[in-house]
Design a protein around this nucleic acid. Structure first.
Lengths: 254, 254
DNA sequence: CGTGAGATTGACTATATTCAACCCTAGTGG
DNA sequence: CCACTAGGGTTGAATATAGTCAATCTCACG
C-alpha cells in the first residue's frame, strides 16, 4: 500500500479534521441531501461525521460490515471486485457527491479504495436508514441518484462489452473530461486523471499495456496531449467523443 | 422481425386480453407493488392497464417517449443499445416483476424488445409519478428494486470486463438457472432459455459463433446437456458456477 | 417436401494479452 | 551533489483468444 502523492500531498500529513457546516458544503446541492430543507439539514448536521482516507488506502473491503453510509465530499475512489486469481474489475468511479453504501444492507459487495485523498461525510447506518424512512426528501433524492447510477452502469456495460481498446480509452477520457472538467484554456480542456494506468485498465477491462498503448495512439493522432502522466489536454472534446465509437451525445458516461 | 414461437405459441394468436385482479397477480409480492396495502392496491387496480407484445417485437425504442411505466407480468425482454455501426449490447434481461422505465424521465435510453410473448402491467407515467410521491410503500419498493438492479449491473460489469468467453457463457447459464429454475429432476436442473444464441451473444459481449462454440465446449465437458436449442439440463449447478470463474456464491447474476 | 431462421463448424485473421526489457521521475541517502 | 532505488509508465516480440467469413446442418413450419 504505497502512498503516491497525487497532487495535494507534498508532505504526508495526518488526515485533516475538517468540519464544514452543511450550508457551506461543496456538495450541498448534488448529494443525497440536495433536497433537504433547513430542518432536515439541521438533523443531518447533528448525526454526520467526517473521515479522511489517504490515497491507496482501503475504505471498505468486499464482505466488510458497513457501519456507515457516506457521501464523498472530496477526492476520488473506486469500487471494484477482485476474482480469486487476481483479475480485478472496477465497477464504479466515485467522485464528490457520490454515495457509498445502501440502506438495508450491512455488507459491502465491493472493495472501495481511495485513489486520491478522500473525505467522506458519514452517517451511522441504522440512524440513516430510519431517516430515509421518515424523510421523503432524502428517499426521493436517493432514488433519483440510484436511477442515474443505474443508467450509468448500463451505459458502461456497452463500453465493456462492445468497444475496442481505443474506443474504451477514448470513452473513459471523455467521461472524465465531462465530470472533472478542469480549466478551459484556449488550447483546450485540461483534465486531471485521478488514477494510475493500472486503475484505468481495471476500469476498462484491459491490461495496463494495452491502455498505455492506446493513450499513446490517441496522443500520436492529436486527439489528446499529455502533460505528465496524470494530466491530459483535450483540444477538441467532440473529436475525443467521436473516437469513443458513439457519435450521439447521450450515454457513455461513467 | 420474425416470429419465433419459443414455446407457448404453437399458433399465432392475437394478444390475449388478460385482466387479473392484483390479488391474483403472479408478481404481486415481487413487483413494485409488493409493499402496497389493500387501499393502495385498489388505486393501482384502477389506473393499471395490460398490454401484450409478440416475441421479437419492440416494446420501446431508444429515444422514444415513454408514456407508460410498466412491470413485466409474464415473459422475457431485453434492454439493449445499438451503436451506429450495428454493434449491439444488451444491458439488462427483463423477467417477470422487473420494472421498465423510471419516474422523472420521458425518454427511453435503451431499446426494449420482447424475447417471448410478454405481458406488461402498465401505468400512465405522470399518474404513477404522482403516486410514487404520495405513496411511500411504492417509493421504498422502487428504491429497493433499483438498488438491487444496480448491484446486478455492477456484477455484470465484472462478467463483461474480465471473464473469458467460456466463463461468460457459464456465468450467464448459471444466472438463468437461478432465476428461471425449471423442474428439478433427479437428472439435474432443467432450464429454458428464453432467447436465441444471438441474444445471448449480445448480452455477453461476444459473437454468435463464439457463444455457440463455448456452449458446445461446456456440453462436451459434461457441465451442461442440451435438449434442443432452447433448453439445457444442468446436472450440477455448483459445477456450472465454478466454470464461471467466481467460486464464491455471491454476485455474478444478471 | 421445401423453406428459412437459427445454430454449428472450420479455416483464417485481427486484436488484445503476455512476458520481458527498458525508460522516466521523484524521493533517499551517502 | 549525485548515484541509487522504486513505482509507474512505455515499448517490443511472441502468443492466445475471440472475431470474421463462409459453408453446412437442423428442424419447425408452411
Amino acid at each position: 500500500m504505497q502512498i503516491n502523492c497525487s497532487r495535494n500531498l507534498s508532505v504526508m500529513t495526518a488526515p485533516e479534521r475538517i468540519r464544514v457546516s452543511c450550508g457551506d458544503c461543496p456538495i450541498r446541492h448534488r448529494a443525497v441531501c440536495a433536497l433537504c430543507d433547513a430542518d432536515e439539514l439541521a438533523t443531518l448536521e447533528r448525526i454526520k461525521s467526517y473521515r479522511s482516507f489517504a490515497p491507496g488506502t482501503t475504505i471498505a473491503m468486499a464482505g466488510d460490515d458497513m457501519r456507515h453510509l457516506s457521501s464523498i465530499v472530496k477526492g476520488a475512489a473506486t469500487m471494484s471486485r477482485t476474482l480469486e486469481d487476481g483479475r480485478r474489475q472496477t465497477v464504479g468511479l466515485l467522485l464528490p457527491s457520490d454515495f457509498i453504501g445502501r440502506p438495508g444492507r450491512e455488507v459491502s459487495p465491493f472493495d472501495v479504495e481511495a485513489l486520491t485523498e478522500v473525505t467522506l461525510c458519514r452517517f451511522e447506518r441504522q440512524t440513516f436508514e430510519r431517516m430515509v424512512l421518515s424523510t421523503p426528501h432524502i428517499a426521493t433524492r436517493l432514488l433519483d441518484m440510484t436511477l442515474d447510477e443505474l443508467d450509468a452502469a448500463r451505459d458502461w456495460a456497452v463500453v465493456l462489452g462492445r468497444l475496442t481498446a481505443r474506443e474504451k480509452v477514448a470513452a473513459f477520457l471523455a467521461s472524465i473530461a465531462r465530470r472533472m472538467a478542469g480549466s478551459q484554456g484556449q488550447t483546450g480542456l485540461l483534465v486531471d486523471l485521478p488514477m494510475t494506468r493500472e486503475a484505468m485498465a481495471d476500469h476498462l477491462g484491459l491490461t495496463i499495456e494495452t491502455t498505455s498503448r492506446q493513450i499513446g495512439a490517441l496522443k500520436r493522432d492529436g486527439v489528446i496531449a499529455l502533460e505528465g502522466n496524470r494530466r491530459i489536454r483535450v483540444p477538441d472534446l467532440r473529436l475525443l467523443m467521436a473516437e469513443a465509437g458513439d457519435d450521439s451525445d447521450g450515454g457513455l458516461l461513467v
